[in-house]
């Protein structure tokens, strides 16, 4: 699949933003983090900007962005619509959390309810994002039960690293903030490696023979293409460059998305303020690079069954 940069930015930025807000909401909800106003302002600003920028960028690849509001109407059948509705609803508890934390300086009563609803709606929204891809049977590597949970766990893990980074800047990093980030990264790494194993060993769902129904004669191969120049289908679905380098890119993903952030976060709690903050920054930069590569690969590795009509053997 052709990886549109706006979609890669959207899914990674909104995942990180929702993860950051969710982890922060849990920390102030449980009282693990005192509701310091400046800290709240920065976290909610960064989180909301990431989420909103992501949602806006998802409209950049549209043919008619001015009609984007219509995408909120078909939630009964469409995961894309459900995601839009969930994203709009999620602003309500985020606003409540912001009011209690930043304006009042205490997260109690209704604002505490908002704090606990924030991770719920954040997870629902990111789950819907994952289901947009997981619901597409025509792309067998996406039509996989782990895909929506991968989106949720990667959002949580990258958000937790982001949260640890922000609290480290305030000298408030501790074993809890590091522990959540480490646990999130480990869980996401296990899911991702499991997903790769699963798609690598899965039997093909469709072949050039079943796509044409000509398998009775033997092996099917294209003779004359329908047109002399590549068409929309080939440009949109026939992306192959990254698949050639998938092994290398997977290793780079493992190092940048999981290994470096894990080591950086784990060491940062044992270091002093400056070294700790520097290690958290390294972990944060690495996790951002890693998630961008991971998402690019997620798109680029996926084979669409329509390519069976254009020379792919199996998908």
């Amino acid at each position: 699949m052709h990886p549109a940069y706006s979609i890669i930015f959207f899914t990674t930025a909104s995942g990180l933003g929702y993860g950051l807000l969710a982890v922060a909401a849990v920390f102030v909800g449980t009282g693990w983090l005192p509701p310091v106003r400046e800290l709240g302002a920065i976290i909610i600003l960064v989180g909301t900007v990431l989420v909103t920028a992501g949602l806006l960028s998802s409209t950049f690849h549209l043919g008619h962005p001015e009609r984007a509001w219509r995408a909120l109407t078909q939630f009964r059948s469409s995961w894309l619509s459900r995601e839009g509705v969930a994203a709009v609803l999620a602003y309500v508890p985020i606003a409540g959390l912001a009011w209690g934390w930043v304006r009042l300086g205490e997260v109690a009563g209704a604002w505490l309810v908002a704090a606990w609803l924030t991770p719920v709606l954040a997870a629902v929204t990111v789950y819907c994002t994952g289901m947009i891809y997981a619901s597409l049977k025509a792309i067998p590597r996406w039509h996989h039960p782990l895909v929506p949970w991968l989106y949720v766990m990667l959002g949580l893990a990258t958000g937790a690293v982001g949260f640890h980074l922000v609290v480290a800047m305030f000298g408030a990093a501790n074993f809890r903030s590091a522990g959540v980030a480490v646990a999130g990264l480990l869980a996401a790494a296990v899911l991702k490696i499991g997903y790769w194993r699963s798609i690598d060993t899965a039997d093909p769902v469709a072949t050039a023979e079943t796509a044409t129904g000509l398998g009775g004669f033997g092996n099917v191969r294209p003779l004359d293409p329908p047109h002399t120049a590549p068409n929309y289908l080939q440009k949109e679905m026939g992306y192959r460059v990254a698949r050639k380098h998938a092994r290398k890119l997977r290793k780079i993903t493992l190092v940048t998305l999981f290994a470096i952030p894990l080591i950086g976060v784990a060491l940062s709690v044992f270091a002093g303020f400056f070294l700790g903050a520097a290690l958290a920054v390294i972990a944060g930069l690495s996790v951002v690079l890693g998630i961008l590569i991971e998402r690019w690969l997620f798109f680029a590795e996926a084979v669409h069954v329509v390519t069976l009509y254009y020379g792919e053997k199996a998908a």
């Binding site: 043919g63 995408a71 949109e236 679905m237």
Partner: peptide, 17 residues
């Protein structure tokens, strides 16, 4: 139509352009 192209991704047969 907002031109999100998702329908063209969902179609196994390449019917939508």
């Amino acid at each position: 139509c907002i031109g999100c192209k998702l329908c063209s991704w969902a179609c196994p047969y390449g019917a939508r352009e």
